[in-house]
Amino acid sequence: MASTRYASDRGLTSRMLVTMFLLGLVYVVFVTAFFVIAPKFGMIALVAALAFLFAQYFFSDKLAMFAMHGRVVSADEAPELHGVIDRICAMSDAPKPRVAIADTDVPNAFATGRSQKKAVVCVTTGLLRRLEPVELEGVLAHEMAHVAHKDVAVMTIASFLGICAGLITRFGLEWGLWGGFNRRSNDQNTGMILLAVVAVSAVAYAISFLLTRALSRYRELSADRAAALLTGRPSALASALTKVTGEIARIPTNDLRSAQAFNAFFFTPAFGKGVSVASLFSTHPSLDKRLAQLSKISDQLSRGV
Protein backbone atom coordinates (compact mmCIF):
# COMPACT_ATOMS: atom_id res chain seq x y z
CA MET A 1 0.00 0.00 0.00
CA ALA A 2 1.16 3.58 -0.62
CA SER A 3 2.84 5.49 2.22
CA THR A 4 -0.22 7.28 3.56
CA ARG A 5 -1.84 7.49 6.99
CA TYR A 6 -4.62 5.13 6.00
CA ALA A 7 -4.69 2.25 8.48
CA SER A 8 -3.05 -0.93 7.24
CA ASP A 9 -5.24 -3.98 6.88
CA ARG A 10 -3.67 -7.40 7.34
CA GLY A 11 -6.95 -9.03 6.39
CA LEU A 12 -6.89 -7.21 3.06
CA THR A 13 -3.32 -8.30 2.37
CA SER A 14 -3.88 -11.93 3.31
CA ARG A 15 -7.13 -12.29 1.36
CA MET A 16 -5.61 -10.52 -1.61
CA LEU A 17 -2.64 -12.89 -1.61
CA VAL A 18 -4.83 -15.98 -1.23
CA THR A 19 -7.18 -14.85 -3.99
CA MET A 20 -4.33 -13.94 -6.32
CA PHE A 21 -2.68 -17.31 -5.61
CA LEU A 22 -5.90 -19.16 -6.43
CA LEU A 23 -6.35 -17.09 -9.58
CA GLY A 24 -2.78 -17.85 -10.57
CA LEU A 25 -3.37 -21.56 -9.96
CA VAL A 26 -6.52 -21.52 -12.08
CA TYR A 27 -4.65 -19.58 -14.75
CA VAL A 28 -1.82 -22.14 -14.92
CA VAL A 29 -4.28 -25.05 -15.17
CA PHE A 30 -6.36 -23.18 -17.73
CA VAL A 31 -3.43 -22.25 -19.95
CA THR A 32 -1.92 -25.73 -19.76
CA ALA A 33 -5.19 -27.46 -20.58
CA PHE A 34 -6.17 -24.99 -23.24
CA PHE A 35 -2.96 -24.93 -25.19
CA VAL A 36 -2.82 -28.71 -25.14
CA ILE A 37 -6.31 -28.77 -26.67
CA ALA A 38 -6.10 -25.90 -29.18
CA PRO A 39 -2.89 -23.81 -29.12
CA LYS A 40 -3.55 -21.79 -32.30
CA PHE A 41 -7.07 -20.77 -31.34
CA GLY A 42 -5.86 -19.51 -27.95
CA MET A 43 -3.46 -16.95 -29.40
CA ILE A 44 -6.28 -14.86 -30.89
CA ALA A 45 -8.15 -14.64 -27.60
CA LEU A 46 -4.93 -14.08 -25.64
CA VAL A 47 -3.92 -11.12 -27.81
CA ALA A 48 -7.43 -9.66 -27.53
CA ALA A 49 -7.41 -10.08 -23.73
CA LEU A 50 -3.97 -8.46 -23.44
CA ALA A 51 -5.16 -5.49 -25.51
CA PHE A 52 -8.23 -5.13 -23.29
CA LEU A 53 -6.09 -5.38 -20.15
CA PHE A 54 -3.68 -2.75 -21.47
CA ALA A 55 -6.51 -0.33 -22.22
CA GLN A 56 -8.20 -0.95 -18.87
CA TYR A 57 -4.97 -0.52 -16.91
CA PHE A 58 -3.56 2.57 -18.61
CA PHE A 59 -6.77 4.36 -19.56
CA SER A 60 -9.19 3.39 -16.78
CA ASP A 61 -9.49 6.99 -15.60
CA LYS A 62 -10.30 8.33 -19.06
CA LEU A 63 -12.68 5.48 -19.90
CA ALA A 64 -14.63 5.82 -16.64
CA MET A 65 -14.86 9.60 -16.94
CA PHE A 66 -16.03 9.38 -20.54
CA ALA A 67 -18.63 6.72 -19.76
CA MET A 68 -20.02 8.62 -16.76
CA HIS A 69 -19.86 12.01 -18.52
CA GLY A 70 -17.68 13.33 -15.73
CA ARG A 71 -15.57 16.45 -16.00
CA VAL A 72 -12.65 17.67 -13.92
CA VAL A 73 -13.53 20.78 -11.93
CA SER A 74 -11.27 23.42 -10.46
CA ALA A 75 -11.32 24.73 -6.90
CA ASP A 76 -13.07 27.87 -8.16
CA GLU A 77 -15.85 25.80 -9.74
CA ALA A 78 -16.41 23.50 -6.74
CA PRO A 79 -14.79 25.07 -3.66
CA GLU A 80 -16.66 22.95 -1.08
CA LEU A 81 -15.85 19.68 -2.83
CA HIS A 82 -12.20 20.63 -3.17
CA GLY A 83 -12.19 21.66 0.48
CA VAL A 84 -13.31 18.19 1.57
CA ILE A 85 -10.69 16.54 -0.64
CA ASP A 86 -8.00 18.86 0.76
CA ARG A 87 -8.92 17.90 4.34
CA ILE A 88 -8.73 14.21 3.54
CA CYS A 89 -5.35 14.67 1.84
CA ALA A 90 -4.08 16.51 4.92
CA MET A 91 -5.34 13.75 7.24
CA SER A 92 -4.01 10.91 5.09
CA ASP A 93 -0.81 12.55 3.83
CA ALA A 94 -1.83 11.48 0.33
CA PRO A 95 -1.31 13.47 -2.88
CA LYS A 96 -4.38 15.27 -4.12
CA PRO A 97 -6.20 13.49 -6.96
CA ARG A 98 -8.04 15.25 -9.74
CA VAL A 99 -11.54 16.19 -8.68
CA ALA A 100 -14.49 15.65 -11.01
CA ILE A 101 -18.27 15.91 -11.10
CA ALA A 102 -20.70 13.80 -13.15
CA ASP A 103 -24.07 15.37 -13.91
CA THR A 104 -26.51 12.60 -12.97
CA ASP A 105 -29.17 12.25 -10.30
CA VAL A 106 -27.93 8.78 -9.32
CA PRO A 107 -26.24 9.50 -5.96
CA ASN A 108 -22.80 7.93 -6.09
CA ALA A 109 -19.05 8.44 -6.27
CA PHE A 110 -16.08 6.57 -7.67
CA ALA A 111 -12.30 6.72 -7.82
CA THR A 112 -10.21 5.41 -10.66
CA GLY A 113 -6.66 5.57 -11.98
CA ARG A 114 -3.83 3.05 -11.78
CA SER A 115 -1.75 5.17 -9.34
CA GLN A 116 -2.05 8.16 -7.05
CA LYS A 117 -0.54 10.39 -9.74
CA LYS A 118 -3.20 9.30 -12.23
CA ALA A 119 -6.09 9.16 -9.76
CA VAL A 120 -9.38 10.97 -10.18
CA VAL A 121 -12.20 11.10 -7.64
CA CYS A 122 -15.61 11.80 -9.13
CA VAL A 123 -18.91 12.52 -7.40
CA THR A 124 -22.32 12.87 -8.97
CA THR A 125 -24.50 15.94 -8.64
CA GLY A 126 -27.13 13.66 -7.10
CA LEU A 127 -24.72 12.78 -4.29
CA LEU A 128 -23.74 16.40 -3.66
CA ARG A 129 -27.38 17.41 -3.33
CA ARG A 130 -28.22 14.71 -0.80
CA LEU A 131 -25.30 14.42 1.62
CA GLU A 132 -24.23 16.58 4.52
CA PRO A 133 -20.57 17.72 4.47
CA VAL A 134 -19.53 15.20 7.14
CA GLU A 135 -21.21 12.38 5.20
CA LEU A 136 -19.54 13.50 1.98
CA GLU A 137 -16.19 13.45 3.77
CA GLY A 138 -16.74 9.81 4.72
CA VAL A 139 -17.63 8.84 1.16
CA LEU A 140 -14.62 10.61 -0.33
CA ALA A 141 -12.30 9.14 2.30
CA HIS A 142 -13.60 5.73 1.23
CA GLU A 143 -12.87 6.47 -2.42
CA MET A 144 -9.40 7.80 -1.68
CA ALA A 145 -8.71 4.64 0.34
CA HIS A 146 -9.24 2.73 -2.92
CA VAL A 147 -6.55 4.91 -4.48
CA ALA A 148 -4.17 4.35 -1.56
CA HIS A 149 -4.77 0.58 -1.73
CA LYS A 150 -4.15 0.62 -5.52
CA ASP A 151 -7.44 -1.19 -5.98
CA VAL A 152 -7.87 -0.30 -9.65
CA ALA A 153 -4.51 -1.84 -10.54
CA VAL A 154 -5.08 -4.92 -8.38
CA MET A 155 -8.58 -5.60 -9.68
CA THR A 156 -7.49 -5.03 -13.28
CA ILE A 157 -4.76 -7.62 -12.97
CA ALA A 158 -7.02 -10.00 -11.03
CA SER A 159 -9.69 -9.83 -13.74
CA PHE A 160 -7.33 -10.74 -16.58
CA LEU A 161 -8.00 -14.47 -16.44
CA GLY A 162 -11.76 -13.91 -16.49
CA ILE A 163 -11.45 -11.59 -19.47
CA CYS A 164 -9.29 -14.08 -21.35
CA ALA A 165 -11.54 -17.06 -20.55
CA GLY A 166 -14.68 -15.06 -21.34
CA LEU A 167 -13.38 -14.03 -24.75
CA ILE A 168 -12.37 -17.60 -25.59
CA THR A 169 -15.79 -18.88 -24.51
CA ARG A 170 -17.53 -16.28 -26.65
CA PHE A 171 -15.32 -16.86 -29.69
CA GLY A 172 -15.74 -20.61 -29.34
CA LEU A 173 -19.52 -20.42 -29.11
CA GLU A 174 -19.77 -18.06 -32.07
CA TRP A 175 -17.50 -20.27 -34.16
CA GLY A 176 -19.56 -23.29 -33.14
CA LEU A 177 -22.81 -21.58 -34.11
CA TRP A 178 -21.33 -20.86 -37.51
CA GLY A 179 -20.74 -24.53 -38.09
CA GLY A 180 -17.70 -25.40 -36.03
CA PHE A 181 -19.55 -27.97 -33.93
CA ASN A 182 -20.75 -29.84 -37.03
CA ARG A 183 -17.66 -29.47 -39.11
CA ARG A 184 -16.81 -32.43 -41.39
CA SER A 185 -13.45 -31.64 -42.87
CA ASN A 186 -10.24 -33.63 -42.82
CA ASP A 187 -10.10 -33.10 -39.07
CA GLN A 188 -12.99 -35.19 -37.73
CA ASN A 189 -12.25 -34.04 -34.18
CA THR A 190 -12.73 -30.31 -34.78
CA GLY A 191 -16.18 -30.21 -33.18
CA MET A 192 -15.06 -32.12 -30.10
CA ILE A 193 -11.99 -29.93 -29.70
CA LEU A 194 -14.15 -26.81 -29.92
CA LEU A 195 -16.55 -28.17 -27.31
CA ALA A 196 -13.61 -28.91 -25.01
CA VAL A 197 -12.27 -25.38 -25.52
CA VAL A 198 -15.61 -23.83 -24.62
CA ALA A 199 -16.04 -26.09 -21.57
CA VAL A 200 -12.57 -25.39 -20.16
CA SER A 201 -12.90 -21.65 -20.78
CA ALA A 202 -16.36 -21.49 -19.22
CA VAL A 203 -15.17 -23.25 -16.06
CA ALA A 204 -12.13 -20.97 -15.79
CA TYR A 205 -14.34 -17.91 -16.30
CA ALA A 206 -16.81 -19.01 -13.62
CA ILE A 207 -14.08 -19.67 -11.03
CA SER A 208 -12.21 -16.43 -11.76
CA PHE A 209 -15.49 -14.50 -11.68
CA LEU A 210 -16.32 -15.77 -8.19
CA LEU A 211 -12.81 -15.12 -6.90
CA THR A 212 -12.58 -11.57 -8.23
CA ARG A 213 -16.05 -10.70 -6.92
CA ALA A 214 -15.10 -12.01 -3.47
CA LEU A 215 -11.91 -9.94 -3.58
CA SER A 216 -13.88 -6.88 -4.68
CA ARG A 217 -16.34 -7.20 -1.79
CA TYR A 218 -13.56 -7.41 0.76
CA ARG A 219 -11.80 -4.41 -0.75
CA GLU A 220 -14.98 -2.41 -0.27
CA LEU A 221 -15.06 -3.42 3.39
CA SER A 222 -11.40 -2.48 3.67
CA ALA A 223 -12.04 0.97 2.16
CA ASP A 224 -14.94 1.49 4.60
CA ARG A 225 -12.69 0.53 7.50
CA ALA A 226 -9.82 2.74 6.37
CA ALA A 227 -12.12 5.74 5.84
CA ALA A 228 -13.83 5.30 9.22
CA LEU A 229 -10.51 5.10 11.09
CA LEU A 230 -9.02 8.02 9.18
CA THR A 231 -11.90 10.42 9.76
CA GLY A 232 -12.79 9.04 13.19
CA ARG A 233 -16.47 9.22 12.20
CA PRO A 234 -17.74 5.75 11.26
CA SER A 235 -21.28 6.92 12.04
CA ALA A 236 -21.07 9.56 9.29
CA LEU A 237 -20.02 6.94 6.75
CA ALA A 238 -22.80 4.65 7.95
CA SER A 239 -25.29 7.49 7.55
CA ALA A 240 -24.05 8.15 4.02
CA LEU A 241 -24.32 4.45 3.12
CA THR A 242 -27.86 4.22 4.45
CA LYS A 243 -28.95 7.43 2.77
CA VAL A 244 -27.38 6.65 -0.62
CA THR A 245 -28.72 3.09 -0.69
CA GLY A 246 -32.21 4.33 0.14
CA GLU A 247 -32.08 7.10 -2.43
CA ILE A 248 -30.82 4.76 -5.16
CA ALA A 249 -33.89 2.58 -4.61
CA ARG A 250 -36.02 5.60 -5.56
CA ILE A 251 -34.18 6.34 -8.80
CA PRO A 252 -36.15 5.43 -11.99
CA THR A 253 -35.29 1.96 -13.29
CA ASN A 254 -34.03 3.23 -16.65
CA ASP A 255 -31.52 5.53 -14.95
CA LEU A 256 -30.34 2.71 -12.71
CA ARG A 257 -29.83 0.37 -15.66
CA SER A 258 -27.65 2.93 -17.42
CA ALA A 259 -25.45 3.18 -14.32
CA GLN A 260 -25.21 -0.50 -13.38
CA ALA A 261 -22.36 -1.16 -15.81
CA PHE A 262 -20.16 0.92 -13.49
CA ASN A 263 -21.13 -0.75 -10.21
CA ALA A 264 -17.60 -2.05 -9.67
CA PHE A 265 -16.37 1.55 -9.50
CA PHE A 266 -19.17 2.98 -7.35
CA PHE A 267 -19.30 3.72 -3.64
CA THR A 268 -22.41 1.55 -3.48
CA PRO A 269 -23.97 -0.46 -6.35
CA ALA A 270 -26.82 1.02 -8.38
CA PHE A 271 -29.40 -1.64 -7.58
CA GLY A 272 -33.00 -1.07 -6.67
CA LYS A 273 -35.10 -3.31 -4.45
CA GLY A 274 -35.57 -7.01 -5.00
CA VAL A 275 -32.08 -7.96 -6.27
CA SER A 276 -31.25 -10.83 -3.93
CA VAL A 277 -29.98 -13.06 -6.74
CA ALA A 278 -27.74 -10.31 -8.14
CA SER A 279 -26.42 -9.65 -4.63
CA LEU A 280 -24.93 -13.14 -4.51
CA PHE A 281 -22.45 -12.10 -7.20
CA SER A 282 -22.19 -8.43 -6.30
CA THR A 283 -19.00 -6.38 -6.39
CA HIS A 284 -20.02 -4.94 -3.00
CA PRO A 285 -20.91 -6.53 0.35
CA SER A 286 -24.45 -6.13 1.64
CA LEU A 287 -25.48 -2.92 3.38
CA ASP A 288 -26.05 -4.84 6.61
CA LYS A 289 -22.51 -6.21 6.55
CA ARG A 290 -21.00 -2.79 5.91
CA LEU A 291 -23.05 -1.18 8.66
CA ALA A 292 -22.15 -3.97 11.11
CA GLN A 293 -18.44 -3.38 10.49
CA LEU A 294 -18.83 0.37 10.97
CA SER A 295 -20.76 -0.18 14.19
CA LYS A 296 -17.97 -2.40 15.47
CA ILE A 297 -15.37 0.25 14.60
CA SER A 298 -17.46 2.91 16.34
CA ASP A 299 -17.53 0.77 19.52
CA GLN A 300 -13.76 0.28 19.33
CA LEU A 301 -13.13 4.00 18.92
CA SER A 302 -15.43 4.86 21.82
CA ARG A 303 -13.49 2.44 24.05
CA GLY A 304 -10.17 3.78 22.78
CA VAL A 305 -9.15 0.40 21.36
Rank of each mutant, 00 (worst) to 15 (best):
S3W: 11
Y6V: 07
Y6A: 04
A7Y: 09
A7W: 12
S8Y: 08
R10V: 02
T13A: 13
S14F: 09
T19F: 11
F21Q: 07
L23Y: 10
V28P: 12
V31N: 08
I37T: 11
K40I: 08
G42C: 09
L46F: 09
F52I: 15
F52T: 03
L53R: 05
A55Y: 07
Y57Q: 04
Y57W: 09
K62S: 08
K62I: 11
K62A: 09
F66P: 00
V72Q: 05
V73P: 04
D76E: 11
E77N: 15
E77Y: 11
E80S: 14
E80C: 07
L81H: 00
H82V: 09
V84S: 00
I85F: 13
I85Y: 03
I85K: 01
D86Y: 08
D86V: 05
I88N: 07
I88G: 03
A90F: 04
M91H: 11
D93Y: 05
P95W: 08
P95F: 12
A100T: 06
N108V: 10
N108P: 01
N108Y: 00
N108I: 02
A111W: 10
T112W: 05
V121Q: 00
C122D: 03
T124W: 06
L128C: 12
R130K: 10
L131P: 00
L131N: 01
E135S: 08
L136Q: 01
E137Y: 03
A141C: 07
E143P: 00
A145I: 04
A145D: 02
V147H: 02
V147Y: 02
A148I: 02
M155T: 14
M155S: 04
I157C: 01
S159I: 13
L161I: 13
L161D: 02
L161C: 03
A165Y: 02
L167T: 06
G176P: 02
W178D: 15
W178Y: 06
G179V: 06
G180R: 15
F181Q: 00
R183H: 12
R184S: 13
M192E: 10
V198L: 10
A202F: 13
A202R: 07
I207S: 05
F209A: 12
L215R: 05
E220K: 05
E220F: 01
L221R: 01
A227H: 06
A227W: 01
A228R: 03
L230M: 09
S235I: 03
A240E: 01
A240G: 03
T242W: 02
A249S: 15
N254P: 04
S258E: 07
A259S: 13
F262Y: 12
N263I: 04
P269V: 15
V275L: 06
S276P: 03
S276A: 13
V277F: 10
S279D: 10
S282P: 06
S282G: 13
S282N: 14
S282W: 15
H284V: 12
D288C: 04
Q293N: 09
I297P: 00
Q300P: 01
Q300S: 05
R303V: 06
